[in-house]
Design a protein around this nucleic acid. Structure first.
Lengths: 313, 313
DNA sequence: GGTGAGACCCAAGAAATACTTATGGCATGG
DNA sequence: CCATGCCATAAGTATTTCTTGGGTCTCACC
């Protein structure tokens, strides 16, 4: 009862109606005449009524045929529209990418990449949602984002046994490194010439301002390697807040270059620290998402932006 | 490009979207899982983009998938509507019959049959068009009528060689006979008792009023058989006009019983004439029109009306 | 932490459908 | 009156479609 109508036959019937004859429809389809004739016969048998009257010069639609043709046209229109829509998506005339990125990337490389993508494919729409890496991965897992820009400190997750992904089905590819820099008050005694590296061991007695959970872990690890335990006094994810505290002499801290590219407070000095491992930048997306043209294009734009950026390794 | 989208696959995709998984769609369709999987694979290959993301618990639609689902729903709705419409036509809840009939039938048996059909199938709509037999057949041949009620004088066409139909593709089935009666002025000397037949030979000296071309031919033939040539003074197709002339004594004439059933003028007398051949009533329709349920029902209603009518042979 | 269940894929064979070839009827038109 | 065009049927072939029988991966449950 419900959609027992064979849509393929319906389209063949439409050809018959357009051509005005069975033989004409066969020519239009590149088939032989009996092929079309059989389709019509089966369609009429299922319909329970004649759809056409066989006339000497071709066929003439019955009332049932006229009604069926109406539906056939609607179906053909929809199929055509579906093909057009898919074509627009695959050729990037349309498409939406829901992108999740952490704040310092959202303020630097992401806008640059979005701009690049917009030049290449004006129809593709990127919707950015700011999220720290764990939340971003959660959005991907929940299907609420298509692509995420994340980072991790150290070349590899320290606590994760390799082979066991935190979220299965997601692929994470490194796309660059973001050096971690020392941020001091401008008046700090160690704030010598800008191009002079600072030894971490000389900062064992400082008060520290820590960032997010994983950044703090990275800081503690670096200090352990340098032979001391940092005196962490304040904690904030926000690199503007961090620098405000530092500028007032309330401590010193480590910030990645992306954060400093986004914003550097006038009252702070930035120095390199030899041996301090950079954080790695990743693109994360569901395993099959690179089969989505818009996502693939967004990935490419992000990679191209990172390659041309000075901080890419 | 245009409707390269396989509608069958589109419906399978719709099942996947509804079930939320490929295996679920397979269960809903009564298929195995790989069957559905292959449909999806081919659909995605043609689309050029992923339509779903394979997740552990099933699949999730991509943007392209959501758009395609929208079209799939529209197609499914149309197919269902098409099936419903055809079902209504085959079960005579709907339908239209364009009926052509000559005037005296249109005034008698046709309204009765339409009434009967209306009782049996209230949804079926009959559109009557009054037409003399030759015109009615022309309407059928032109596809402007579905069914015609016609008549012919004599058991067979006198001038037609048998086997050569006047309009190929039309079938003509006799459904009854309509006696031809003598109509006289009430004051006419031959207007004796109503049940007394009148011999045609006694009317050789009368003035005659003839009807249509074929009716006139029939009159001349009958008179020839009776041994005289009628003195035809007036001619009209209209049985009301004919009777008005007769009532005023301007002549006498022959009229079929259906015409007199429709209307008998007060000033005329009606008598039987032995040996006068009746006219035959026919139903005519395109050869395959009996495969149209509404036409078949209309034919049946007309036959049933004629069987129950007193003048049916 | 194995282990079973559920969801997916691939490859190859079986079943069903779709199309072609071959032939004949019927109506039209030079 | 024969040639042409349109349609139907029947049987054979070919292609599509579905199943069978492998395998991987993740999750949930002992």
């Amino acid at each position: 009862m419900a959609h027992g109508m064979d849509p393929h036959r319906l389209l063949v019937f439409r050809e018959i109606a357009h051509a005005g004859s069975i033989a004409g429809a066969a020519r239009a389809l590149g088939w032989t005449q009996p092929a079309v004739s059989q389709h019509l016969r089966l369609l009429e048998r299922r319909a329970g009524t004649a759809l056409v009257l066989r006339r000497p010069r071709g066929v003439q639609l019955t009332e049932a045929g006229r009604i069926l043709l109406d539906h056939a046209e609607a179906v053909a229109t929809r199929l055509s529209a579906a093909a057009d829509d898919l074509d627009a998506l695959t050729h990037l005339r349309e498409g939406t990418v829901r992108l999740a990125a952490f704040p310092s990337a959202s303020a630097t490389i992401v806008p640059a990449a979005m701009s690049l993508l917009g030049e290449r494919h004006p129809g593709v729409d990127v919707r950015l949602r700011e999220a720290e890496p764990p939340e971003a991965v959660g959005l991907l897992a929940a299907g609420e984002a298509d692509l995420a820009v994340t980072f991790a400190h150290g070349g590899r997750e320290p606590q994760e046994p390799p082979g066991r992904e935190e979220h299965p089905g997601l692929v994470r590819t490194p796309v660059g490194e973001d050096p971690v820099l020392l941020v001091l008050p401008r008046s700090h005694p160690q704030a010598g010439p800008a191009d002079r590296p600072v030894d971490l061991r000389s900062l064992a007695a400082e008060r520290w301002i820590a960032g997010c959970e994983r950044c703090t872990a990275s800081l503690r690890q670096a200090c352990r390697n340098a032979g001391f335990v940092p005196d962490v006094r304040h904690g904030t994810d926000d690199y503007v807040v961090t620098q405000a505290l530092i500028a007032r002499g309330l401590g010193i801290g480590l910030l990645p270059r992306l954060a400093l590219d986004a914003f550097t407070a006038p009252g702070v000095a930035v120095r390199t620290v030899p041996g301090l491992p950079p954080r790695t930048l990743f693109l994360v997306h569901p395993r099959e998402a690179d089969r989505i043209p818009a996502v693939r294009a967004a990935v490419q734009a992000l990679r191209d932006t990172l390659v041309s950026a000075p901080d890419a390794s």
